Amino acid sequence: MYISITKQHLDKTFSRSASDFVDYLQKENQGKEPEVQEHFFDQENDRIPPEQVTKEIDGNTAKLKKTEPKFYSLTINPSQRELKAINNDPELLRRYVREAMRDYAASFHRDRPVTVDDIKYFAKIEHGRTFKGFDREVKENRPYRAQIVKLENDIRKIERGELQGDIRRTEKRIAELYAQIPHKIHGEAIVQGMKKPGFQTHVHIIVSRKDVTNRYSLSPGSKYMESESKLNGRLVKRGFNRNLFYERAEKTFDTMFDHKRNFVETYGARKTYLKNPHKYFARLLDLPTSERSAAFKILGKAGVKMPIVSIPTSKVQVALKTIKKFKRAMDVARSSGSIGI
């Protein structure tokens, strides 16, 4: 499970309306009959018109400055293993989102407990993703594609008499390069914009910066992380605890659907990797045999090339070169968005 939280956008000032973002979230519904469209939903309602979403988010921005975001965007990205656990069922995913938003609300610290009833949010399920330019498959295919495009241009120049060469030999070289392209789907080379295979269902959530009364700010932004401050002469916690939210949301999924989460799929493991890759790798090799084998399989599907998988756990301290190779492979997969780190 990979959950991201971002503010309205990254510019210095913020649009007064959420309409552009709401319109963007309607992209998968274009050309579909109403009965097969995915609708916005909240904690109680399953079919909320996009116009109502825009109206309620735009109308809940009292006293916010131009330099302050009006809303935040949450994206819940279940892994393919997690989607398989719920049979890619959108109704089960909606149930999970509603429970996860309880976890989101409970991760705020104010002078009183915050509940999901204090949060104004609207969520929408999307089923597809496309390959981006930074995806590992696109990046690794790119050098082959560049050579093929150059050779195709050469053929056109030869046909126009602008270049001397053997067209048949050039075509043969193009065929050889195409056969060597490492990543294909049904025989077609993966390029930017191509649809990703398998379950790709995920959820976009638009959350108002203000609570439902339009009086209090509930910001999950990095400037408003959990901290302590004095209130009426005593120390109290304020702000938003992201770690708590991510951990609770993960446990909620596992509890709801009896999901057995592997070490490499946990939020705690991802944090360990970022802070201490050596410790992450040592912990990985110290797993029971069956869980370690499953972990390697999961990482392999994510595009992480394991340099050595048979190294004994007693020799972890002498495996520095292996760990460095592993980290490079993990970084490649991470930068392409293949794994939830």
Rank of each mutant, 00 (worst) to 15 (best):
I3Y: 09
T6H: 11
Q8F: 03
L10M: 12
D11K: 15
K12D: 11
K12A: 12
R16F: 12
S17T: 15
A18P: 13
D20I: 13
D23E: 14
N29F: 12
N29S: 14
Q30P: 01
K32V: 03
E33P: 07
Q37S: 03
E38A: 03
F40C: 01
F41V: 00
Q43C: 08
N45C: 02
N45D: 00
T54D: 05
T54L: 04
K55Q: 14
K55Y: 14
K55R: 15
E56H: 13
T61Q: 15
T61F: 10
A62W: 14
L64D: 10
T67V: 08
T67N: 05
K70A: 05
T75F: 09
I76D: 01
S79Y: 13
E82I: 10
L83F: 13
N88R: 12
D89E: 07
V97A: 01
E99Y: 12
R102P: 02
D103R: 04
Y104R: 05
A106N: 06
F108E: 05
H109G: 06
D111N: 09
P113S: 05
V114S: 09
V116M: 09
D117T: 14
H127L: 02
G128L: 10
G128N: 12
T130R: 02
T130I: 06
K132C: 00
R136K: 15
V138R: 00
Y144R: 01
R145S: 07
A146F: 03
I148L: 02
I148P: 00
V149M: 04
L151Y: 06
N153Y: 01
G165L: 06
D166F: 11
R169Q: 13
E176P: 07
L177W: 10
Q180I: 10
P182K: 07
H183M: 07
K184Y: 10
A189P: 11
I190Y: 01
G193A: 05
F199T: 00
T201N: 02
H202K: 09
R209E: 03
R209W: 03
D211G: 11
D211Y: 11
V212T: 15
S217V: 13
S217A: 08
S219R: 05
P220H: 09
G221N: 09
G221V: 02
S222E: 15
S222Y: 15
K223M: 09
R234A: 01
V236W: 07
F240H: 08
F240W: 12
N241M: 07
F245W: 00
R248P: 00
D254F: 04
D254W: 03
D258R: 05
F263Y: 10
E265P: 08
E265M: 15
T266F: 14
R270Q: 07
N276K: 04
K279L: 15
Y280P: 02
F281A: 11
R283L: 13
D286N: 10
D286G: 07
P288N: 15
A294H: 08
A294T: 05
I298P: 08
G300W: 11
G303D: 05
V304G: 06
S310E: 06
P312T: 05
Q317C: 09
L320N: 15
K324Y: 07
K325A: 06
K327T: 13
K327H: 10
R328H: 10
A329E: 06
S336F: 00
G337C: 03
S338T: 04
S338Q: 14
G340V: 01
